[in-house]
Design a protein around this nucleic acid. Structure first.
Lengths: 257, 257
DNA sequence: CGGCGGCTTGAGGTTGGTCAAGGCATGTGG
DNA sequence: CCACATGCCTTGACCAACCTCAAGCCGCCG
């Protein structure tokens, strides 16, 4: 049993979710063992595979080990709004599972490796291990901050500013999971996809990208994006990396009553 | 001590935060007592009072007992994007406190009654009581869902649809905290404020409101908004109340390993 | 009574969406 | 190995939507 735990803990210690949680709060061995027990059923999802379809009920979460997905909603007008890009370490079905019927759809945009976790197991773990549920709470707060920044983008930023902000957000988030170099990354979305994310039409995304290139702020080679002038882009997009930063839980050190 | 606890639990059992948390998970007496101990320092904030200013560090949360506030960000262009309306039962400084420097500002839009909670106390409580941190996790997930819906609004919905969606969201959220009747509520924002929330200019909000009135979908008397045709508004704004619904945590009933 | 904040309405101009056509790369099947 | 199909990028023309600016109005509060 001890061996199983050790193996489980060992095999998952490099999992992006675990490292993310560990950045906000120090998890102990028992926490890691419990999380390891959760992340047993590995599954794969291929490109364009629907993982969650809006309107259906789900009692299972998928923790992303590698690959990307989009969380989106289709409107009756036929328009699509992408709400977020799901990256390694993110949890698919969070918060979809907390509702009777999923509010958004999630689709893989490349091949993905996932861990399937029944919602009941997840709930039980939260209720049993305060460290874990607190770390997840911080995780959810960061998620909300990312969403809030997207509201700013869509609502009040100019198209060029939006794009600048989006590119820097991608670079920063991808770096955090080790999928980007110092100045460049591979864009997982098509230009139309970018438009559905930041609220522009495909052609206009193209025009704005061309402008950033003309100004010498970025360069592109296929889907490889290189940030040439980060400082200028940060000013243009009013990008503050702070909202994506790791935010450690700092217990007071006092004993609870 | 027991008396203190009982008194504390009794005095806060009607608090909107407690009832909200209780809807998602059944809190036991010890949970309630701990929460009651947290909600001791009552303070008031008058209209237009800044509670959180972007860029500063905060180590204290404010739980809203009554009144409203806006969470927003000012851009260099002078534009303002309101990210959310803070209502009774919401927590101000969540997620702002989880960052070194606040990412958004929060300002009261009427007189408010708040409970001041040091962040350390909050953290300690989360780490000590898994029930509470799990309930807060569900709470944060709902918050994220509301934000996601705002992204859809700003990004892809037509102005008239946005407004319809926004009015229904207000009605539903206000009903949940007992601040609205079956079909009407008092709008706490000016038309320019609505514009800053849904990403339109003040004059255009006015035109869209006029159109909804002309179509007989709503009526207004000063700041009192009455929904005349909820069904039509729901279709127009593609509003599904589901994403605002209470979402109970359902433990499996199994014993954790 | 005077000032101010917010609502209402109008005119004009720009932005960015839509539609459409063409080009280029990739992949597939004969 | 070539022919073809497909998906995406690119560019252009047109036009409607919505912003900006501005002026007038109303109700409230000092």
């Amino acid at each position: 049993m001890a061996i199983v735990r050790k193996l489980a803990a060992g095999s998952i210690s490099g999992h992006p979710l675990i490292s993310k949680l560990n950045q906000s709060i120090a998890l102990d061995d028992a926490d890691l063992a419990a999380l390891g027990a959760l992340l047993q059923r590995k599954v794969v999802a291929h490109k364009a595979k629907d993982i969650i379809v809006e309107g259906y009920e789900y009692r299972v979460l998928h923790v992303v080990e590698s690959g990307f997905a989009i969380r989106y909603k289709l409107l009756h007008s036929g328009k699509r709004q992408i709400v977020n890009i799901v990256m390694p370490g993110d949890i698919i079905g969070f918060p979809a599972c907390f509702y009777e019927h999923a509010v958004f759809s999630v689709t893989a945009i490349g091949d993905m490796s996932l861990h399937r976790v029944p919602l009941d197991d997840f709930t039980d773990l939260c209720l049993a291990r305060a460290n874990v549920s607190t770390a997840l709470l911080w995780f959810a707060a960061r998620e909300a901050a990312i969403y809030a920044e997207h509201i700013i983008d869509a609502g009040r930023r100019e198209p060029l500013e939006r794009l600048a902000h989006f590119l820097l957000e991608m670079l920063t988030r991808l770096q955090a999971v080790g999928s980007a170099s110092e100045t460049s990354f591979v864009m997982p979305l098509s230009q139309e996809g970018i438009g559905d994310l930041i609220g522009l039409s495909g052609p206009h995304v193209n025009r704005m990208l061309a402008e950033l290139k003309r100004e010498g702020l970025i360069a592109m080679d296929g889907h490889e994006v290189t940030i040439l002038d980060r400082a200028a882009l940060q000013i243009l997009g009013e990008f503050r990396p702070a909202y994506l930063a790791r935010t450690p839980v700092r217990p007071s050190g006092r004993r609870p009553a």
